[in-house]
């Protein structure tokens, strides 16, 4: 019998995402794909999957699931989420084996907005225009083009070979949010120099309306030198557009393919995930860098992802109180929450 994931619960915003839908932007089709491309690729690479394989993008709403039919090895990477397997705590970035019936819970933790659950063997879902990325606004991709929900069953492909389990060692995932790097443009000339300076000085707060489509920023209002209506042109992920009322909006994975407001700057590729992981209310700043610096950062990330991912065995794993008590290792150890 082949394996499948069965979801007991999924908060709002949990979707299937692969590396994105490419080649159809010219027809108005958004790329979708992961909000944090580094974490998504890392979870896949830790299993030996292609970096862009389909995985579950878990939102702050969290999820709880099990596997049916056969054991499956999964990897998690992303924000500092709380992960438990049959009640036993696991690190937030981890490769672990799920036995049929085991319950995996992933819930929002101390930091971060997105966590990726990749599966050895991959998720067996039909593709739409060459991709399994979900774009809910157009009902495209993933599972019936929608967010995942309780009761959903996701078939898993056959995995090849042995996969090491344990904590994923990835210092690159520790990314501060205070300084998001941008390249100015493509329409920075629509803003006077003092407005560019105001934009770079910030500080900006992530607004509560932020979602997969856009990250709304609160802070000083920017004014335009050359007006704010431009004939629509292409929109890259990370484009920071400034509409008439002056508060910038960073266009993210589910953005429209073209847009009609001046774009003062664009977040560099490797900092997209860093921005996506900043929760509403977080204070952020922007720093302008050169094209060469952005490419250098991309090369370093690429080199990390294409190398062997270090998996550290969980020698001293975070055991449950019940398990430690059962071992009787700690004399007089009392769990205040348990009845005496």
């Amino acid at each position: 019998m082949s394996a499948a994931l069965r979801l007991f619960s999924a908060g709002p915003g949990v979707t299937v995402q692969d590396g994105g839908r490419h080649g159809f932007l010219r027809y108005g089709v958004t790329g979708a794909g992961p909000m944090d491309p580094l974490a998504h690729a890392l979870a896949n690479r830790a299993l030996g999957n292609p970096a862009g394989a389909a995985a579950i993008e878990i939102s702050l709403g969290g999820t709880e699931l099990t596997v049916e039919g056969a054991p499956v090895t999964i990897a998690l990477a992303g924000g500092e989420f709380q992960v438990t397997l049959d009640g036993q705590a696991l690190p937030p970035a981890v490769v672990t084996r799920l036995e049929p019936g085991a319950r995996l819970k992933v819930r929002a933790g101390s930091a971060g907005v997105w966590c990726y659950l990749a599966v050895a063997g991959g998720l067996r879902l039909p593709d739409v225009l060459g991709s399994r990325a979900t774009h809910t606004r157009t009902g495209m991709g993933g599972l019936d083009g929608r967010m995942l929900q309780a009761g959903d069953i996701l078939p898993v492909g056959m995995a090849a070979g042995e996969i090491a389990t344990g904590r994923i060692v990835a210092p690159l995932l520790d990314r501060p949010t205070e300084s998001i790097r941008v390249l100015l443009g493509p329409q920075d000339d629509y803003f006077a120099p003092d407005q560019i300076a105001t934009f770079l000085a910030g500080p900006w707060t992530i607004g509560s309306r932020s979602d997969r489509m856009a990250c709304f920023l609160e802070g000083p209002r920017l004014s335009h030198k050359l007006g704010f209506n431009i004939p629509s042109d292409g929109v890259a992920m990370g484009a920071i557009q400034v509409p008439g009322e002056g508060l910038p909006i960073v266009l993210m994975a589910d953005r429209q393919s073209t847009g009609g407001y001046p774009k003062i700057a664009t977040v560099i590729g490797v900092d997209l995930g860093r921005l996506a992981q900043a929760r509403p209310g977080t204070c952020i700043g922007f720093r302008a860098v050169s094209h060469a610096e952005a490419v250098q950062a991309r090369a370093e990330e690429q080199s990390f992802l294409s190398g062997a991912i270090t998996i550290e065995r969980l020698l001293r794993s975070l055991f449950s109180p019940e398990f430690l008590l059962g071992l009787n290792l700690v004399d007089g150890w009392v769990d205040a929450r348990a009845p005496a």
Binding site: P186, V235, A236, K263, T266, R298
Partner: peptide, 9 residues
């Protein structure tokens, strides 16, 4: 015009 390091307008 650069639209980030991976897109040119």
């Amino acid at each position: 015009l650069d639209a980030g390091e991976a897109a040119l307008v």
